Simulated scan of single mutants.
Amino acid sequence: MPLLPGAEPFHHRGGPTGVLLCHGFTGSPQSLRPWAEQLAAAGLTVSLPLLPGHGTRWQDLQVTRWQDWYAELSRELAALHETCTEVFVFGLSMGGGLALLLAAEHGERVAGLVLVNPSVRADNPAAVLLPVLRHLVPTLPGVAGDIAEPGVEEVGYDRVPLNAAWSLSRLWRRVQESLPRVSQPVLLLHSPQDHVVSPANSALVLARISSVDVTERLCERSFHVATLDRDAGLIFEESLGFVRRLSMATQPTEATDQRG
């Protein structure tokens, strides 16, 4: 099945510090591509995979489950560790939830997390009907494209397949159970005006993780897809500073100097 234009994965071989980026539900790597390119330009090794069922047509997502999306990210994390001495994981929306689960289950193999409007809970009360509704209605209207900046579009599906949405709800449960096991440094950026993921998601993450090194930033000019919106520059700058601060603290001086 041909990919949607812009949905291609992105990989860049850079220095010994790696970053794995995780896109959101019904989205694609396009929503994180400018972020990935900024990190690559700074000399980092970057992996931005296309999650199974995404970037083609909604029918392909309908037959996947959260375990498929998570397995793809686990493989990418392992591949990065073959060439990198440390790996950070960044995620947008559902990608943030998957990033948290990676951190909980892989421990020290995840050096730190950057989360943008992470999705970890149901915001619509109707979500409790998904186990039944998914057998009656195949899709609902899509959620892609929640961006404040005029003329900026997100490459994603215009429909939400309910079998996949039901699996996403199962992922939320797994992530919530795992949050206390997340102890890595965390940078969390979220938009007060988010029409897809409520601020209660970020509040839940901050309340339940065990991390001591936690930084919270507001993306006050952006909607949900803040990585393509008016606060994209803030996200790029803060996340790169986060990685550099932690890398400088954990790497020998010589290696730090080599990375600038």
Rank of each mutant, 00 (worst) to 15 (best):
S202V: 02
L140S: 05
A203D: 14
G151F: 01
V205Q: 08
N163G: 10
H135D: 00
V205W: 10
A200Y: 04
W172R: 03
H195S: 12
D213C: 10
W172H: 10
S167L: 02
D194G: 00
E154N: 06
H135F: 12
L136P: 09
H195N: 14
V155D: 08
P161H: 06
Q184E: 13
L189H: 06
V186M: 02
S167E: 01
P131H: 01
T139F: 14
N201Y: 04
G151L: 03
G142S: 04
N163D: 14
S178D: 05
V196Q: 02
S167D: 02
S178P: 07
V205P: 09
W172T: 03
L187I: 03
N163F: 09
I209M: 11
Y157A: 00
S210N: 14
E153I: 03
I209P: 05
Q176P: 01
N163W: 11
E177M: 11
P192F: 07
I209N: 12
E154A: 13
R134M: 07
L187T: 02
L140H: 00
P180R: 11
V186R: 00
L136H: 14
L188H: 01
S169L: 04
P185V: 11
E216R: 08
E149M: 14
V214C: 06
D158E: 15
L187S: 08
L204T: 14
Y157P: 02
A207N: 06
Y157N: 00
P141W: 05
